[in-house]
């Protein structure tokens, strides 16, 4: 089970906890699982998020692997200048 941590402002949308344990093997499964379990996250997921997997930032790639012991952070979508 990968440890998935959401940024603080999403706490309410996931029932008061920002650390979740999810049985997911890639980014697509992660986003699907979040959307299904926590419908209130829908607008934020639709608006786009960044996902950090073991320190590597992933923006859109659905098929980047998530290992059972991966550290996963869901963060706001970011852009540079």
């Amino acid at each position: 089970m990968a440890k998935v941590i959401l940024w603080g402002s999403l706490k309410k949308a996931v029932g008061g906890k920002t650390e979740l344990e999810l049985d997911v093997s890639d980014v697509r499964e992660l986003l699907d699982a979040l959307g299904e379990r926590y419908p209130k996250l829908g607008p934020q997921l639709d608006a786009g998020v960044s996902v950090s997997i073991d320190g590597t930032m992933v923006r859109d790639n659905l098929f980047v692997a998530i290992k059972p012991d991966s550290e996963v952070y869901v963060l706001p979508r970011m852009a540079g200048g």
Partner: peptide, 12 residues
């Protein structure tokens, strides 16, 4: 390296 960053992910 290994620090849990202030925004979450651990630094390489």
């Amino acid at each position: 390296e290994g620090t849990k960053s202030s925004y979450g992910p651990t630094f390489g």
